[in-house]
């Protein structure tokens, strides 16, 4: 499948780990990711927690718990907390989490980075969108350990960048928000679109945001803001605000 760099080398994954095409193909090009449920199914969920089999090199240091006999080079992690090293917004962060922790929960609960929102918790609304190596992903469907070795950019990190500033300024100018709960995910998705396609059409913006749900109905403003950030048009007049 052609497309951007895979977020994960599939040889790292345990068998039947649930590698699947992501439900929402935001950029109109094939991306490959890991569905959380598929992965959990593959790894085996128990009421007490989830143990994961993984190549040890995925972790910043050795796991706290090791048990059972496995083929050489494969170890079992969990169900207790393990240390994981993540690269978030250009900084190295070491956290102790159960292996089943999603990237969204790791950010929100372990790093107090609550700009990333969790709404549906199953990849159906994209409120939790962030960038992994510049590819927008649903962080509720990505395990934190799958982000090891990748550059994670959240809304907090984007805010520090110039492309973040221009998109956020356009959102403000067009009042592309109401309650604001979808807004961080929208800003991430629209910024990622401009990185791949600096001069999008409105249809491109619609396609890119097709997985991002806004229940307040701010879509017309989001389209206008994104086109403005791209310098494609000042479409203030389209919603006669």
């Amino acid at each position: 499948m052609s497309g951007p760099k895979l977020p994960h080398d599939s040889s790292d994954l345990p068998q039947d780990s649930g590698v699947a095409q992501t439900a929402e193909n935001k950029l109109g090009k094939g991306t490959t990711g890991i569905t959380r449920r598929g992965f959990l199914k593959g790894a085996g969920v128990t009421a007490a927690g989830t143990a994961l089999l993984e190549g040890a090199r995925a972790f910043g240091r050795e796991a706290a718990a090791t048990r059972g006999e496995h083929p050489e080079g494969v170890r079992e992690f969990g169900p207790g907390p393990v240390a994981v090293t993540l690269q978030v917004n250009g900084k190295e962060r070491v956290i102790h989490i159960e292996p089943r922790t999603t990237l969204a929960d790791a950010l929100r609960l372990e790093m107090a980075m609550t700009g990333t929102k969790v709404v549906c918790d199953r990849g159906a609304c994209s409120a939790c969108t962030l960038l992994m190596d510049d590819i927008p992903i649903n962080s509720c469907m990505t395990l934190a350990i799958d982000a090891v070795g990748h550059q994670v950019t959240t809304i907090e990190g984007l805010t520090e960048s110039s492309e973040g500033h221009s998109m956020q300024a356009a959102f403000l100018k067009h009042d592309a928000m109401q309650c604001g709960f979808c807004t961080p995910g929208m800003v991430m998705t629209c910024s990622a679109l401009l990185k791949k396609n600096p001069k999008p059409t409105e249809d491109d913006v619609r396609l890119a945001t097709a997985g991002n749900l806004c229940r307040c109905g701010t879509y017309p403003r989001i389209f206008a803001a994104t086109l403005e950030a791209a310098g494609v048009s000042d479409s203030e007049s389209t919603h006669n605000a």
């Binding site: 929100r108 609960l109 107090a112 980075m113 609550t114 700009g115 990333t116 929102k117 969790v118 959240t154 809304i155 907090e156 805010t159 998109m167 956020q168 959102f171 403000l172 100018k173 009042d175 928000m177 604001g180 709960f181 807004t183 961080p184 800003v187 605000a241």
Partner: peptide
């Protein structure tokens, strides 16, 4: 008139803290 949303900067930057964000 239509000045920019007063709490818009907090919303677009993820700084806005909702109930689900309280720790």
């Amino acid at each position: 008139k239509s000045p920019e949303r007063w709490d818009g900067p907090a919303k677009v930057s993820g700084r806005a803290r909702y109930t689900a964000d309280i720790q």
